[in-house]
């Protein structure tokens, strides 16, 4: 186990170093200058500005400066969007709303998804099952931004149930974005739990439990549900990815001051250090989530042998 985790950690660092290197050099060859109205500056002014951001140093020096900074959690300085603010601070200050809608979406999606999947499996081939399957297919198929715009139009604009956009009414502002983000986890969990439950319900120990006279609900919750739940951990990774991808557009649609919205903005204004910082932040987040999921899976279900890695 320890060896496996150690191996995974080494891979994680190699991957992150590669991403950081890749991002750094990509940003250097990008067209367009990060300095606002660079053409209007005289060569002397330009030199002063470049010196301030360390852009006058030779490339290898810049690279190693950046990498050492990274190790200390320093993602550099924002160049034009936040005028000299520290990128780490910018990301941290915007983490709140993103984390809130992401967490709420994940929670809502998984809980509802488990419920849907369970009901569907217990009432297989009835209208409940078909209904839940249709919801799952729609949830997987319809892109979050289409769904988010529909929610905004109907629930926000037409029926006026929730704020249309912005982050001003506390929890109420977070309802629509959370629902939009919840669709994918909901659909994934519902499909997954349904398949697992049907498989588990057909296994021998369920027959034994029935033979011993256990009641229907006891079998469903105590025996089947618990075992069906374990493999759900494996799809937590894809779910986290979907929440993150979704947050880029959902935050944009609902004008939420989160990391996703600011990332899209910094792409538009060529703020290299913010783009790099956010990219690395996203990568760390996703890689850590996947690592934790893999380790958790091995800890919870001893039948899985971790030494073989992912199958």
């Amino acid at each position: 186990m320890a060896r496996y985790i150690g191996k995974r950690l080494i891979y994680m660092f190699i991957t992150l170093a590669l991403i950081a290197t890749f991002t750094f050099f990509l940003m250097k060859i990008l067209p367009g200058s990060p300095i606002a109205s660079a053409d209007k500056l005289s060569p002397e002014q330009r030199a002063v500005v470049e010196a301030r951001y360390g852009l006058d140093q030779p490339l290898p020096v810049q690279y190693f400066d950046y990498m050492f900074g990274l190790l200390q959690g320093d993602l550099g300085i924002s160049i034009n969007q936040f005028k000299g603010a520290n990128v780490t601070d910018v990301i941290l200050s915007r983490m709140g709303p993103s984390a809130q809608i992401g967490f709420q979406g994940m929670l809502l999606g998984t809980v509802l998804g488990i419920l849907f999947g369970m009901v569907a499996a217990l009432r297989q081939n009835t209208w409940v099952d078909y209904g839940s399957t249709i919801v799952a297919i729609i949830g997987i198929s319809i892109p979050s931004f289409v769904f988010a715009s529909m929610l905004q139009y109907w629930l926000g604009l037409k029926w006026d149930l929730f704020p249309v956009a912005l982050w001003k009414d506390g929890f109420m502002s977070s309802v629509l974005p959370s629902i939009a983000l919840a669709m994918f986890p909901l659909a994934t969990a519902a499909r997954f739990i349904r398949t697992e439950m049907i498989e588990v319900l057909g296994s021998d120990y369920i027959t034994l439990a029935k033979a011993k006279g256990a009641s229907g609900s006891e079998i469903a919750f105590k025996h089947a549900f618990r075992n069906a739940l374990i493999p759900l951990i494996t799809v937590l990774g894809p779910m986290a990815v979907s929440i993150l991808t979704g947050s880029l557009v959902v935050e944009q649609i609902f004008a939420i001051p989160g990391i996703g919205e600011q990332f899209v903005k910094s792409i538009m204004v060529n703020d290299f250090s913010i783009i790099m910082g956010t990219t690395i932040f996203f990568s760390v987040f996703l890689i850590v989530v996947i690592l934790v999921v893999d380790i958790l899976y091995g800890v919870i279900d001893p039948r899985i042998r971790l030494s073989g890695g992912k199958s």
């Binding site: 891979y11 994680m12 190699i14 991957t15 590669l18 991403i19 990815v241 993150l244 991808t245 880029l248 990219t279 996203f282 990568s283 996703l286 890689i287 996947i290 890695g309």
Partner: peptide, 11 residues
């Protein structure tokens, strides 16, 4: 491949 798959697609 292991390293490549570690990099998030979106990024």
């Amino acid at each position: 491949v292991e390293i490549l798959t570690g990099i998030p697609n979106l990024v």
